[in-house]
Structures are given as structure tokens and as C-alpha cells.
Design a protein around this nucleic acid. Structure first.
Lengths: 191, 191
DNA sequence: GTCTATATAATGATAGAC
DNA sequence: GTCTATCATTATATAGAC
């Protein structure tokens, strides 16, 4: 079953902790405690905290790519695929309520730290951006697909931020409905 | 001219640093260095870091109230007032590009720290929320004014997050235009 | 690969002189 | 009110035994 290496466990734990507590607030001790290894052993796998961050962003990129290609397979029309994106807000609403969006909050934190990993973290957004853009492109070749992708991406981010600030899951459903309606109205206008 | 106390200077410096570097990442030394006082003197004014945070949130609440009442005086119709809110994204675009929204990013960080000041910070959002809600109420007594207020608040937050992640000021203008159009379409539908 | 022990720097916080 | 000196704790990080 589990042929995961210690390194994998570290990255996995760091991934969760960075999301739930923030990157800076998460210490080596905290990660080591979660994985149940000593801090010394820790440094055998990662020399610096930044290295762990890079590894975490790496697996997040990988997981996101896998998820997007899965959506691409499971949903046959571009509209259904965009709707699938919108509805991750519902799927992940419990965690979003507590910790916001894992991508948005990481980028926000790294921006304030002026951290060198900013471009790598941004790529997480870019994955969604280009994927969404491709779907909008399929709906209408003449549309500004990137602008539409960024629009729906921004809407999602705003929902996550406020849902977290107000600890409000109902607000997520409310806004997802509006985004669905926006998408329907947009498509209808194209027919 | 400047009859500001040392305490005022500390709060002012902390306010800026918390915004630009984040709360946790900002140390006492850093604030003391900015104000040009010793760390020891520092503790004469504030016993703990949380006390400074509370003071910072306090002045932010005060400043926000003042700004909102100024908007109320300068703009005569509820639509103009809502538009005024939307356009702070343009006004503050340079800082937003670097550090995001001061309210949203603070609430996000405090949520991850599970910090006791969360409810106080949330009040910053509530000020905008109720103010916007009142404006929508004036446009249409039968509308769900709070839902509309939260919608436009979320849109703004999303724009700030992505503008920061992509270091993109043009995106702010792009989305502000869409929000203006949304507002116009909404009002037109009410006539 | 894993551990214990340790070095070093920074943090929040206090005591007491001026 | 302001300072210097200091403490306790925690952080990242290293060295070396097993």
C-alpha cells in the first residue's frame, strides 16, 4: 500500500500545514512533529525551509495538472468544464471557510514576504488561467478568452476570501449560483 | 504641526508594516527601527504584540468610518457612492498590486493564525458591507441589499488578490470596468 | 536514514538606570 | 519617556554518533 518515502510524508505534512497555518508560521518542529521524525532527520531530506516550499509547490502543480486533465476527460463540453471549476468552491467549502483558497492565500503570503518562490506559486494560478482560457476559446474563438478566464478566477478568489473572513459557507453557494448564471447568460449570448 | 505622540508613530509604522510584510513577519525590532526608538521604550507603550495589532485595527476602523462618511457627503446618489467604492481599486492600484487589499490580506492571515483579533479585523469588512448594503437598499427597498453588497465586496477582493499574484495593474482597470457595467445594468433593470 | 546534541541568531518580553 | 542590558524561548541550521 504505502511505499511513500519519508520525504513524501514531509512534503505532504508541510503542504497541509502551509495551507492551514501559513508558510512562515509553520516551523520545522511542527512539521517534524506531524511526521513523527526528529528535527535532525529532517535536514537529511531538506536543507532549507525554502526547499520544502518548492517541493510543496511542485506537488501542488502536479496535483492541479492531474485534476484539470481529469476534468477535461469527465466533462465533455467547455461549458461543463468551466462549471466544474466553479463548483470546486462547493466541493471544498468546508476548508475554504477555514483557510481560504490554498493558491490565493499562498500567493498573498509570499507577496508580503517578497519571497523568491513567488513566480513558482503564481504558476498554480496560471494553470487554471490557461485551462479556463482554453475552454472559453472553444466556446467563442473571437472572445478575449484570457480576460474571461481571469474574470471567473477573480470571482472565485473573492468568494474564498469573504467566506473565510465571515466564516460563511452559505455565501459560497449564493455566489456559485451567480457565477453559474453568469456563465449561462454568457453562453446564451453566444448562440 | 505634528503633535503626534510616540504611541501614534508606533501604530502608524505598525499599520504600514503589517500591510506590507504581514503581521507575523513584522517584528518589534522592525517597528522600533522604523520609528527610531529602542525596543525597550517600545514596551512602555505596548505590552504585547497583540496590543499593537488591536491598536492598528482600531485606527483602521476609524479611518474607514471617516472615509465612508466622506464618500457619503461627496457623492449624492447611492449609485455614485457604490461606484466610488468600486473605484478605490483604481485609486490604490499601485499598493494593491504589491500587497493586495489591506483588509482582505489581514483577515486571511489572522484566520491561518487562528488569532483572537479575527472578529475585530472582520469588522473592517462589516463597515464596507453595511455601508454598501445601505446604498443598495436606497436603490431598491425590495432587493436583497446585503447579498448585493457582499457580491461587490467579493468581486473587489478577487481583483485585489489576482492583481497582486500577477503583478498586474491593467487587470484592475479591466475588472473595474466590468463592475461599473454590472452596476449600470443592475440600476437600469430597476428603472 | 535516523537519532541526540549543539551552535547561532532572532524573537517577544522584562528590569532597572537616567 | 527613553534608554541599555538582559532573559527565556524559539527558530533555522549543523555535526556527528548509531
Amino acid at each position: 500500500m504505502s511505499d511513500k518515502t519519508t520525504r513524501d510524508h514531509i512534503v505532504e505534512a508541510a503542504d497541509q500545514l502551509f495551507y492551514q497555518q501559513g508558510y512562515e508560521h509553520t516551523s520545522f518542529s511542527h512539521i517534524a512533529e506531524t511526521v513523527k521524525i526528529s528535527r535532525g532527520n529532517f535536514y537529511h531530506h531538506f536543507k532549507t525551509k525554502d526547499e520544502i516550499l518548492n517541493a510543496v509547490i511542485g506537488v501542488r502543480l502536479e496535483n492541479t495538472r492531474r485534476m484539470l486533465s481529469q476534468w477535461e476527460n469527465e466533462e465533455k463540453t467547455p461549458v461543463d468544464r468551466i462549471r466544474r471549476f466553479i463548483h470546486i468552491l462547493i466541493t471544498n467549502r468546508a476548508k475554504i471557510k477555514h483557510y481560504g483558497c490554498p493558491v490565493g492565500t499562498l500567493c498573498t503570503e509570499l507577496a508580503k514576504l517578497n519571497h523568491p518562490a513567488q513566480p513558482e506559486a503564481r504558476r498554480l494560478f496560471t494553470l487554471f488561467r490557461t485551462w479556463l482560457s482554453r475552454q472559453f476559446e472553444k466556446i467563442d474563438h473571437n472572445a478575449d478568452a484570457d480576460e474571461l478566464a481571469m474574470h471567473i478566477l477573480a470571482r472565485s478568489q473573492g468568494v474564498a476570501t469573504l467566506a473565510s473572513a465571515f466564516s460563511d459557507q452559505k455565501f459560497i453557494k449564493q455566489e456559485v449560483k451567480l457565477m453559474d448564471e453568469w456563465l449561462n447568460a454568457y453562453v446564451k449570448g453566444k448562440i
